[in-house]
């Protein structure tokens, strides 16, 4: 069972399969079986199954029968869920992958807003259907879009960038859309 750069960045996981499994159950409506989770992260089914059994035994996840399939789901009211979500988000997913945007010239700040940000901050609700990203700066639009399209393809949900200049962001109260976005949950992607 491999430890790679993924888990070395947050060296508290037993294996790569552990955060991968939890990430899918938190955020990916398509990957809920050991096979699909393994495929999504380039792991073997056995690696995911081993971790799933441990988390099932601990009561952190549960097994649901949907049609002919047995799918995994998190136990939302387990006391460790909130802390685990934070750790998962620091290991895999948008808060890690969106750091690539800082490689684009002109990008000053990157933040996630909308449903993904609300789930990250622990607000209960359905699985996010997209990842809304606020990019502050004056980058080339196409370069930002290219990074987001790549992540969209990787995640299987749309990663939608919204680019605003630092002046627009500073005077966000005058723009109703920006005002609404920034008055809601906003999660900073750190460089």
């Amino acid at each position: 069972m491999g430890q790679t750069a993924t888990t070395e960045a947050m060296p508290i996981w037993r294996s790569d399969a552990q955060p991968a499994l939890l990430y899918c159950l938190f955020y990916d409506a398509h990957a809920r079986t050991a096979s699909t989770i393994a495929e999504r992260f380039g792991l073997t089914r056995q690696q995911v199954s081993i971790e799933a059994r441990r988390l099932l035994a601990a009561g952190i996840i549960r097994l649901e029968v949907v049609g002919r399939n047995k799918v995994l789901a998190v136990v939302d009211d387990h006391p460790a869920i909130s802390a685990l979500r934070t750790l998962v988000d620091l290991t895999v997913g948008p808060l890690v992958d969106l750091k690539r945007l800082y490689d684009v010239d002109g990008v000053e700040r990157v933040m996630v807003f909308g449903s993904w940000a609300r789930r990250h901050l622990g607000e209960p609700g359905p699985t996010p259907r997209d990842v809304d990203v606020l990019v502050v700066g004056t980058p080339d639009d196409y370069a930002v879009t290219s990074v987001c399209l790549d992540l969209s393809g990787q995640y299987g949900v749309e990663v939608s960038p919204m680019i605003v200049s630092s002046d627009e962001f500073a005077s966000r109260g005058r723009n109703p859309i920006l005002d609404q976005i920034t008055s809601g949950p906003l999660v900073e992607v750190r460089q």
Binding site: S146, C148, L149, D150, L151, S152, G153, Q154, G156, V157, E158, V159
Partner: peptide
Amino acid sequence: TNTEKGLVRR
């Protein structure tokens, strides 16, 4: 590619 998948979704 992932970028192409992203384009289809967009």
